[in-house]
Amino acid sequence: MSVILGYVATILVTFFTYNIFTLGLNIQFGYAGILNFTVITFMAMGAYFYAVFVMPPANASNQVFYILGLHWPWPLASIAGVVASGALGYLIGLIALKRLRSDYLAIVTLATGTLLYGLSGDNNKLFDGWAGLFAVNQPFQSVANNNPNTFSWIFVVISGLVMLAVWWFANQLYSSPLGRSMRAIREDQDVVDAFGKNTFKVRMLAMVIGSTIVGIGGVLTIQYIGALSPAGWTTGETFVVWAALLVGGRGNNIGAMLGSLLVAVVFNEGTRYIPQVASNPNLVPDLRNIIIGSLVILSIWFRPQGVLPEKKAKFFELPLKDKYAQTFGGSKADQDLVVEV
């Protein structure tokens, strides 16, 4: 029973954190059209920086090395992690958003992500190299130690609440004039530029907000698991988030949520429970990638907008004033259209 309870809690936390990643990517790609191909790097940045702020100084005699080790209380360290991922978003934005359009930008994000991946793996002074950080201080540490299931369910509530807050934020942004500017930039950046908006600033905002949100998910991830190594944030993980957004419906936050459920939970987690084949240990992970890859291809082929496509904006409207109709003959133009266009 308690095993099942713990399992359900883990599934829920996975769902909530992936949903946070997907919402972050949706703001970048679904709203503003920014092709961020290194989503998961921001997760890692949030997680690592939370860790090095919350942990005590590294103990060299254990052959464990990492920067900082400030031993801050977990709420402050959480903020530090989130700020770090937002700051990384800003830096990558400076390189990628100033001059580059979509495809080149995608390459820059991919390259930067790969670079950071290699750097943090090969340089064990940063985040303990390929071994990664473990025994990271968790919130409610004593509960986590003595009563893992209780901790898990506390965490379900915490990550659920954070996810709801992010969801609310994303929706507020979407329907606002700022969100509208982002979507217009997605449609045609030059035109938005020609109408007087500082498109670099708006795109940068989307980039930083998205990175910050993904960083929030990263902090939650490491708080729940208590460890993170580079193996946990490979390019494949970025792909899972992308798959969730594309299958669910880019530009639609409920779609993003549905996509995280389908891809990150049902397919990604579900396939982990296919029995291992001893002679071929890579079979199951490969199978998982094949399944998710096929899902993306099928979805782009048959439902390019995703399962839940972006919704059309609706506005509160008063009946039309007829002053133009009188002075300009506007209704005449309307009639002409009916007949001729």
């Binding site: 700022l178 509208r180 979507r183 045609d188 035109v191 109408f195 007087g196 904006a313």
Partner: peptide
């Protein structure tokens, strides 16, 4: 060069500068 994925009305709304919600 319309904003194809937005409604006609939204195409107009987005271009007005100085909206507080920006």
């Amino acid at each position: 060069r319309e904003f194809g994925g937005m409604s006609v009305l939204e195409n107009l709304l987005v271009v007005r500068l100085g909206q507080s919600g920006e």
